[in-house]
Nucleic acid binder design. Structure first.
Lengths: 105, 105
DNA sequence: CATAATCATAAATCATGACTTATGATAAGC
DNA sequence: GCTTATCATAAGTCATGATTTATGATTATG
């Protein structure tokens, strides 16, 4: 199984998940996000940094603002990673069931 | 979007993810897991508790041992939750793209 | 019955990371 | 040019949670 679960870690924090969801709703600037969230602007910036490094969002400078969008590439990668993990887990479970059936014969 | 992301949080810790993967590979006792992992037995038990509360694994007592298996129910629920989240995110992204196309006309 | 093996919980320690308060850098508006 | 708005980074604080040691409970074994 593969290593890259940065996205998982990124989305495990409740505030950061909120940030992600707000951006998923529609692209927003840092100030925009800060206005809605119960944390300071630097806190928001730091969460955005984590999300960006996990390739879940990307920044697009617009004047003095920085508009954050979803990053479809990273999103796709995480999706693929999750699918793989799920496949492995379910395959293993299936093998286990078959195995116990085998034994019962 | 729904609340329940306990599974996400549970799998965000590297040691706990390793525990999950080992169990996915095949059902194991606590001692079995402890032998492989670089942490103490109580640490393993506590990780198992988190995974169990997230309904990713379940325990099956066998003599003095406790064999941990994957929990297909909880696994299915988390899968559904992730699919929903992904659907929402990708739908939102699609709307955004359509929107910018619209504007460009 | 006594000892050994397995496991879970409690309490304490320790590391990580979430958050805050500065602060500086860049861009827009007057 | 000066002020205002937006943002990121640095440094420090604080909370959370991952881990350890100690211990008791349960079950198998001799």
């Amino acid at each position: 199984m593969i290593y890259d679960y940065a996205g998982m870690v990124a989305l495990a924090d409740p505030t950061r998940r909120k940030v992600f969801e707000l951006i998923a709703d529609r692209p927003r600037s840092v100030i925009d996000l800060t206005r809605v969230l119960p944390v300071s602007q630097p806190a928001v910036s730091q969460h955005l940094k984590v999300l960006k490094e996990a390739r879940l969002v990307r920044a697009e400078p617009k004047g003095a603002s920085n508009i954050y969008h979803l990053d479809p590439h990273g999103l796709g990668e995480m999706r693929a990673w999750l699918d793989r993990m799920w496949g492995d887990a379910l395959d293993a479970f299936k093998r286990e069931v078959d195995n116990s059936k085998e034994k019962r014969k």
